[in-house]
Amino acid sequence: MYVAVKGGETAIRNAHALLADRRRGDRSVPALTLEQIAGQLALAVDRTMAEGSLYDPELAAMAVRQSRGDLIEAIFLIRAYRTTLPRFGATRPVDTARMRIERRVSATFKDLPGGQLLGPTFDYTHRLIDPAMAGDEPVAEPERRAWDETAGTPRVTDILGDEGLIEPDGEATGEPGDLTRDPVAYPVDRDIRLQALARGDEGFLLALGYSTQRGYGRNHPFVGEVRIGMVEVEIDMPELGFAVSIGEIRLTECQMVTQFHGSGDEPARFTRGYGLVFGQSERKAMAMSLVDRALRADEFGEERTAPAQDEEFVLEHCDNVQSTGFVEHLKLPHYVDFQAELALVRQLRREQAEAAHGLAPSLDETRKEAAE
């Protein structure tokens, strides 16, 4: 049985006090506000919302502050809070073709309807530490462009779809599943798979997506389009007979156009991988779309030979909260287990030494007798 550590409760209270002290830092420096975190550390907040699967920038900023910038801990806090919230319905599928775009790039078409928009990106910055970061950064006001609310911007995959050059987009039928409320049974439908990937760890998915490009899978991808912007969220109101807008959220969408597929019965055409993530998180959306396409191997009669194509392996290990819990539980007391194994190792070494001097049956014989 476990032996209680003396003074444990006092030690835990002191650990909490020390954590709060370290979190506050130097008292002569003003404390961080939630507005500062949400506005100036927006990408950290966006990742917390995406992998915490709860869209609330203020709450995510609070979690980032409470966790001292440890994003997995912040995601854990958001997940825990999310479990207290009731679920009262499902929204309509968001129409990303009508996204109020902040960034839109395509690697497949240079001149595409609606144009390319660089938006806020690190892609063209020099990877050099900027001395201006040491002080109050001077900021030039960017040029703003007018947005036509009625026009919308067609997606690249819609352009390919009009010519029948890419597989049809899936249609939403019925209410989607919810992996946070119902147990996962393999194989899963694509809606559950995309949910798991959307809240999966960015680093894990990035590594898997990279692996598919290095030959551990069958991906030969092109970025059809990455777009970031605000999308209206609507929910059907049966008592009113029409949908009502409940607000806007910022999303990143990636449609990955990948290797063609065809057979004697159907013409060759491109296939697609899909990524959709809360906030501005194009690296995550791109990795998600690569892994989504890899996990669709069975749909195209492809042999599953790589980790990124193994649905159960990917979905069971992409969740960073579950992974953290299982790894960090090793810090908890395992005194009894270790003492049992320690006693066994000592016994085996003793038997080995005795067998070497002809004083006892050999170790193999001892194990054989024990097995019998």
Score class of each variant (00 low, 15 high):
residue 273 G to I: 09
residue 254 C to W: 06
residue 264 G to W: 08
residue 284 K to C: 12
residue 291 V to Q: 04
residue 266 E to L: 11
residue 277 V to H: 01
residue 288 M to G: 05
residue 260 F to G: 13
residue 263 S to V: 06
residue 265 D to E: 15
residue 256 M to V: 04
residue 266 E to T: 12
residue 266 E to A: 14
residue 280 Q to S: 06
residue 261 H to W: 15
residue 259 Q to E: 15
residue 276 L to G: 05
residue 289 S to P: 04
residue 287 A to M: 00
residue 291 V to R: 00
residue 265 D to V: 03
residue 293 R to I: 09
residue 274 Y to C: 12
residue 257 V to H: 00
residue 264 G to T: 04
residue 270 F to R: 03
residue 282 E to N: 01
residue 269 R to K: 14
residue 281 S to V: 01
residue 257 V to C: 03
residue 267 P to V: 11
residue 286 M to C: 10
residue 280 Q to T: 01
residue 282 E to R: 00
residue 270 F to E: 06
residue 271 T to N: 05
residue 265 D to Y: 09
residue 291 V to M: 02
residue 272 R to N: 10
residue 277 V to I: 15
residue 284 K to S: 12
residue 268 A to Y: 00
residue 255 Q to P: 08
residue 271 T to D: 11
residue 266 E to N: 08
residue 276 L to M: 10
residue 276 L to R: 01
residue 270 F to C: 10
residue 271 T to Y: 06
residue 285 A to I: 02
residue 284 K to R: 11
residue 266 E to G: 10
residue 290 L to M: 13
residue 275 G to F: 07
residue 259 Q to H: 13
residue 258 T to K: 03
residue 293 R to V: 08
residue 285 A to R: 02
residue 277 V to P: 01
residue 269 R to A: 13
residue 292 D to N: 04
residue 274 Y to S: 13
residue 260 F to E: 14
residue 259 Q to V: 15
residue 259 Q to K: 12
residue 262 G to I: 05
residue 277 V to Y: 07
residue 292 D to A: 01
residue 292 D to F: 04
residue 293 R to K: 01
residue 268 A to K: 08
residue 273 G to D: 09
residue 260 F to A: 14
residue 289 S to H: 06
residue 268 A to R: 09
residue 267 P to S: 10
residue 255 Q to N: 08
residue 288 M to Y: 08
residue 258 T to D: 15
residue 291 V to D: 05
residue 258 T to N: 14
residue 258 T to Y: 00
residue 282 E to I: 01
residue 288 M to P: 13
residue 268 A to M: 12
residue 255 Q to V: 15
residue 273 G to M: 02
residue 280 Q to K: 03
residue 287 A to D: 09
residue 267 P to K: 12
residue 261 H to M: 09
residue 271 T to H: 00
residue 257 V to A: 03
residue 292 D to G: 00
residue 277 V to Q: 06
residue 287 A to S: 12
residue 262 G to E: 05
residue 277 V to S: 06
residue 279 G to N: 02
residue 259 Q to M: 12
residue 270 F to I: 05
residue 273 G to R: 04
residue 286 M to H: 07
residue 278 F to V: 02
residue 271 T to A: 05
residue 293 R to F: 15
residue 258 T to Q: 00
residue 289 S to W: 10
residue 260 F to D: 15
